[in-house]
Amino acid sequence: MSTALLAVQTLNGLQLGLLLFLVAAGLTLVFGVMDLINLAHGVQYMLGAYFAVVGYRLTGNFLFAILIALALAMALGLVLEFLVYRHLYGRSHLDQVLATFGVILFLDEAVKAIFGAAPLALPGPEWLSGSIPLMPGLLYPVYRIALIVAGLAVAGLLYVLVNHTRIGMLIRAGASNPAMVSALGVDIRRLFMVVFAFGGMLAGFAGAMAAPILAVEPTMGDNLLILAFVVIVIGGIGSVRGAFIAALLIGLIDTLGRSFATDLLKLVFAPAAANQIGPALSSMLIYLLMALTLFIRPAGLFPAHRQ
């Protein structure tokens, strides 16, 4: 039974990792290209889930709901860029942290005022319901498998987009030397808007896809945001590849740590002590990993070569 549990938890970890990657990819691009800390990225993820709920209520169709969520998440990104973020480029990181903190307060409260604080539910599509046996005695929900597949597909798409297209080339150039890109005649403002809207759309997509398996509530973005920051710091700010690897690492370590840390500790400590330390240690594990990474490599695993 233990192998079955290990397999399930590994899949769960993979799924959390891919979800984290979708959020972290936008965050690291915005960070890398615009040198902007966007604390409100977690709220954009949360709103993606709410947009999907709205879309579902309007159309009654899951696919349409996701498409509506994507469109609205992108629109939200553009509006935020126009109203707030545009004025923060080139400001100190401290100012950015504070202004985006204000954005969080506003959007969180707006969601509470419109939808209420109680969690909402988004039903998954009929054709992805049920479970399939992965191995004898191990059933795994189809929707979660679909989530993993969708996450991997978006990661692949992003890889092609960033590494093999013209806009991707500009984004990579912008991440390493924005002033030079601007000097070479690229409209850097438009590039910034595109990156911001696209990052917001990725976060919104993650939120919408996560909505059927999580409770849709105003606080759902908070913890994920912090995890996404851990991911981009470990991966190296501005590096999509680093974000991908770090996201999977964090997803797996966090999920497996939570299920097995206490049992592993019981091998060394008395059961009572292990029961005490286990939960604390497992929730600290990823932060320990981050502190250790920064201690050894102060700019993350795959630092983008910023001039």
């Binding site: 960070f31 800390i37 990181h93 942290v97 912090i226 920051f229 851990v230 710091v233 700010i237 932060y287 981050m290 502190a291 920064l294 201690f295 102060p298 700019a299 993350g300």
Partner: peptide, 14 residues
């Protein structure tokens, strides 16, 4: 030992 954004993030982690 870290600077800038990394310092903000590591203090957040702690």
């Amino acid at each position: 030992r870290t600077r800038g954004v990394y310092l903000i993030m590591i203090t957040l982690a702690f």
